[in-house]
Structures are given as C-alpha cells and as structure tokens.
Design a protein around this nucleic acid. Sequence first.
DNA 1: AGTGCGATTGACT
DNA 2: GTCAATCGCACTA
Length: 205
Amino acid sequence: MRNVGGERRYPTIARVRLPLDTVLLARYLIGKLLVRETGNGTLSGRIVETEAYPIGDAASHAHRGMTLRNRALFLSRGHAYIYIAYGTSSMVNVSSEAVGVGAGVLIRALEPLDGIASMQRNRGVESVRDLARGPGRLAAALEVDRSQDGIDLCRPGPLRLARDDQASPEIGVSRRIGLSRETERLLRFYVRGSPFVSGPKRLNL
DNA sequence: AGTGCGATTGACT
DNA sequence: GTCAATCGCACTA
C-alpha cells in the first residue's frame, strides 16, 4: 500500500476489528503489518507466521495466573506482551481476549518491508530472508524489547499493527514449534510458500 | 537467597 | 542434524 509519493501508509486496525478469540486472531494476523517507529525512522514487516496460546493452554505463560512478567497478556486484545526468552531473545505477542483473561498470539516471523537497511544493521546480517525469520530475530530487527511491553497495538505509537490491502495469502496450519510439553493441537499459522517463515520444512508444507 | 528452566539462536559436525 | 550460551523470572524455603 503506497501513495503517489512512494511512501507506504500504515492504517491502524481498530480493536473492534480484531477477532474475540485467540485462535481466530492468530489466523487473522497473518498478512497484517507490524510497524515500529524509531527515532531513526519506520521499520515494518508483513506477519507471515503466528502461534496461538489460548485460554486453558498449559504452555501459555498465563496458565498459572497473572504475574509481573505476564500481566500484559491480561489486557484487552491488541496489546503487546513482550518477554525475554533464554535470557537473550525478546518475543512479541498480541494479547487476544477480554480484559482480565490471559491469552496471546506469538508473532514468529515477518517479511521485511520498510527500514531494511536499519534491520540489517540491528541484526548484523545482510540476508533479507533471515532478518525477521524467527521470533527473537524479528524483535531484534525492529528494536523491540520489554520497554514496549503493554503498548496498545491498535493506536498510533512506537509499535502497532496495520492493515495491508493485498490478496489474502494461502494460510497453512501446523503444530507449534519449540515446546517441550507438546500439545497436539494445530495452533501455528503461516503463509504457505513464504521464504520468510521459520520452522522445519516439514511443518511448512 | 538459591534453584531450575525455557514460546531461541548461532555455531558447529 | 546436534549442542551449549545465557539470564530474567517464577517458585521454593
């Protein structure tokens, strides 16, 4: 979506447009845009991979109740929950239910759009394909960390969601990645055929 | 105050 | 394909 000046526009997504269900939201977010405004300009990417962590899911950080770390999961749908995994990688999630209900959608990969040169600098990597292929990588590329935890992604600000008027991509479904206590439910969604999707090949068919 | 564990990544065989 | 680095945080006492 570009205007005549060639600059991409990022229309925000009203909260009421977000599905009121974690799994539906995970699917809905495929093809939408994640936009990061920094002092040095705009960084953005198309969401090509998500995972749902719904109500009652034993693997969800919200499963054992609200804590200092996970409280953003209990905000109304469309707020950022950001945490650090393995001491080094920040993970970007979207809260996905009503206020007081803990659930979220993990954004696992982006197709880089604007600010690619900045992302390459942030990641120390040239390959555009590898800039945001993986949850920790995309956070590093977009300069996202715990200081954006709790931000409303449905309002203008340093981190937000945006629409993109493109043909709806073909969405694939698989089990989730990287969980030790694996559930059998199909809670991972991705753009079929996209080179920007993470995960083993057999899960991306 | 101490312990154990990851919703990962990058380096390596 | 394997494997270890790394540290914030929840949990136990």
